[in-house]
Design a protein around this nucleic acid. Sequence first.
DNA 1: TTGTAAGCGTTATCAC
DNA 2: GTGATAACGCTTACAA
Lengths: 341, 341
Amino acid sequence: MSAGKKFEAMSGNIKKIAELAQTSKSSVSRVINNNGYVSADVRERVEKAIASINYHPNAGARTLRGSPSRLVGVLLPSLDVPFFGILAHSIEQAFFALGYQTFICSTAESQDREQAYVGMLLAQRIDGVIVASSRQEVDPFTPLRDRNIPMVAIDRPMPGLTDVCVHVDNHYGGTLLAKHLIELGHREIAIISTPRHSEPMIQRVNGACAALAEHGLKPVQIAYGNEHNLGAGRRLATKLLQKTPRPTAIIGTSDTAAIGAMHAAVDLGINVPGDLSIAGFDDIPEASYVLPRLTTVSQPTRKIGERAVHRLHQMMSGELELAVEDRLPLKLVVRQSTAKI
Amino acid sequence: MSAGKKFEAMSGNIKKIAELAQTSKSSVSRVINNNGYVSADVRERVEKAIASINYHPNAGARTLRGSPSRLVGVLLPSLDVPFFGILAHSIEQAFFALGYQTFICSTAESQDREQAYVGMLLAQRIDGVIVASSRQEVDPFTPLRDRNIPMVAIDRPMPGLTDVCVHVDNHYGGTLLAKHLIELGHREIAIISTPRHSEPMIQRVNGACAALAEHGLKPVQIAYGNEHNLGAGRRLATKLLQKTPRPTAIIGTSDTAAIGAMHAAVDLGINVPGDLSIAGFDDIPEASYVLPRLTTVSQPTRKIGERAVHRLHQMMSGELELAVEDRLPLKLVVRQSTAKI
DNA sequence: TTGTAAGCGTTATCAC
DNA sequence: GTGATAACGCTTACAA
């Protein structure tokens, strides 16, 4: 029974195709891979045989012979927050178009998981990896580097790991937000930054502080959280808004944080943007879902994914040997959540 | 140079480990797989050798010998809409915990893509598949069924493909929404359903209509769209709200559609819930992001993913041979977007 | 133009 | 306890 089952589940192989088509394994291989000489006659018989049992060449056996696996890995902190969901989606789609299959790995900000994933990807003999690590920690990924696996850092650079990076200028984005609020007349500006140790968030805070400093200002408070979700922003803002004097504006280092702050304001009966301006970062779809619609710095999320795929593809084809840093453009999008004081 | 490169990129193999540890391939294999007799001495030498070159067994070669690949596929219509993003995430996490690697495939509602993905998954010799197809179309997936690949349908049944399904009772969910609005005094109720041909959406519409019929009512209009995004709902609602007489309530068959409708109302200066009640379906995080927060039917999205993984795991271990239909519970969540007329 | 045979990395079988 | 060896499915010299 076990044997019977195995047989049923077993897919045909190249030998079986050869038998069905009354030819040899080599000829079948030649047809499949479209190389070498094959007569029209043999080709037709083989194609018929392949279709007749819905045969698919065993990818593992192929890579065993030295062909690239056409498998790639994408390591992201999570998948269920909008920004990374969209990023993962655009990456997966772009790889599919190039004939690659993607392992999307959600590392949940844990080094143990990162390490486990790296091991699995190596075992699958992936051709390349796109990586965004929660922290700048390089350790879990060094086995990839040591094997010369082509790697592209996305969303944040990974110095010491790879010299190819696709991201945005988060520092500059931070200055855009601060300047916008200053122009609107705000002087008492607070910042909500979460998750705390994420490099992009740190850069955004720094940028905002730098722009404030140019006007002789500094943030009335910088509140840090640990999670990348609405609740974190809401909690931090609730605390912050109950202090006196209250800030007249809040910068969230992500839209999620900013929207959380908006909810805190509603809970406390504070009018946005009448009594309080709020701005975010990323321009996820939800930014224009909320009412009032959120002023934010727009990041070309899909393009970032696509560019990273393009770069990795170049590396895997040996067309890119040098260090490259792609900085995609940011844009301030003014909506209804910020106003003159 | 090509050869040199290849060598560099090449990872060590079991033979190399055997040399380093001064033993045979067989003993190395025994250590790795923890079966058969190995002396403590040999074991230690092998483990040291493995660590020294960061060796990872070639997964493809293993499956060539007949071991399961511990690879699974998940076919979803998309990844960048919140519901499927969360579903994909919970599935991937649950599989990781079981030692499986997941191919997340975003089929973009296209049969060509579905077919291409099925071919790729078959070539990778995946052990099982979780599938949610946009339509009830079985054709692209029959090669999986023909090979006896364990399959679980998720979010919607796939009759003729698999008898194992994890979903919710969408019809019942539809009745919950209609009853809620009727209780609030609404009689002029419109429905916005998108994407049109999605089976869950159809069921939700049917459920709502059935509940209305019980009270001698029927929807003033059912508007259909084709996309699963905010814009579709907004467009449909804008049209619908400009007719006279205007409905006093709108049921969206998804939160996305409902939030789109909310934006249409804002654009037209219609107060929600004062002049118009709006309710959605799914309870994605965004449902409580919007203001007013959205009344909706809550679907246990993460649990659905986890249960599907559990079922597939059972099938792959041969513990589940029969048909199973898991229906997870729905719950009406009343928030601020619906009110008495 | 076609077929034979070796070898990719692994594990199971069997002999020692 | 340990080590040869064959076999998994495939591609590629090389021979015919």
